[in-house]
């Protein structure tokens, strides 16, 4: 049987719940509903259900521990093609043997899931530093990012703690997702239209150029090493960095 879901993590876990009840040996494929229908195969469309998803995740958490649940979530958010069946395999293996992850390096499939999860956490950590807010007219802080993995929801908690008294928004340009914080809650929304007419606050320009000034002066000319700089801060992030857009 082929299962179709809406592409969300909750949706995916709901599929796992249904598949478990149908008997896992029936599962031939799990795919995003946007992939379209298959002509010849039997399909089942699963809608995202929080209760079902919660049962699967709590079950995994209690049986295999936080590390396994975390790996699953982060590997999912890496948004690699064909992720569903591999993650399905990972969940089955974990439920059969709670030590799956510890033995992971010997099984190339589990190793793959682990490396996806690692990629997501690495980009998360990197983005905590490389994200740049700009102050808009209404005092809202606004950041644009274009990450490889779906990390906007994962980094929101960090900024909510750090800037609890500010209103801010992180916009994932590639995925058309905005994560917005209104001083109380974190909200995630899909946006279709690109905001072209952004109005910055009157002091924004001043602080930007001060930051660029600082950035230029803090480098030691005698130790110049652009290769090292690139390896820490890959060029793909530069268009959204205040200091790099001015320099280049």
């Amino acid at each position: 049987m082929y299962y179709q879901y809406d592409g969300s993590f909750t949706g995916f876990l709901s599929v796992i719940y249904e598949a478990y009840h149908d008997g896992t040996s029936h599962v031939e494929g799990i795919e995003n509903i946007s992939a379209g229908t298959n002509l010849f195969d039997e399909e089942k469309i699963i809608s995202a259900n929080l209760d079902k998803a919660d049962k699967v995740l709590t079950g995994l958490y209690h049986k295999c521990g936080a590390q396994t649940a975390h790996t699953l979530y982060y590997a999912f958010m890496a948004e690699q093609p064909e992720r569903e069946m591999l993650l399905f395999y990972f969940i089955c293996a974990a439920f059969r043997d709670p030590d799956t992850l510890a033995k992971g390096k010997a099984d190339p499939w589990i190793g793959q899931v682990e490396s996806w999860s690692l990629k997501t956490s690495n980009e998360c950590h990197r983005m905590l530093g490389l994200l740049r807010f700009s102050e808009l007219e209404e005092k809202i802080l606004y950041a644009e990012i274009r990450p490889d993995h779906n990390i906007a929801p994962l980094i929101a908690g960090h900024f909510a703690k750090r800037m609890a008294e500010e209103e801010w928004a992180v916009h994932d340009l590639g995925r058309h997702i905005v994560v917005y914080y209104d001083k109380e809650r974190i909200l995630t929304a899909n946006v279709t239209e690109q905001e072209k007419n952004i109005k910055y606050s009157p002091t924004e320009k001043k602080f930007r150029s001060m930051w660029c000034q600082y950035y230029r002066h803090i480098s030691i000319e005698e130790r110049r090493n652009p290769k090292l700089q690139r390896s820490f801060m890959p060029e793909k992030y530069w268009p959204y960095l205040t200091e790099m857009s001015k320099v280049s």
Partner: peptide, 26 residues
């Protein structure tokens, strides 16, 4: 962070940029 305050410490530290000499700016 404290109520009404801004900022907190990140135990592992966070690098925010890298200057032309490849050293991190935190």
């Amino acid at each position: 962070n404290k109520p009404g305050g801004i900022g907190n410490g990140a135990r592992s530290g966070i690098c925010h940029s890298w200057s032309a000499d490849g050293r991190c700016i935190s």
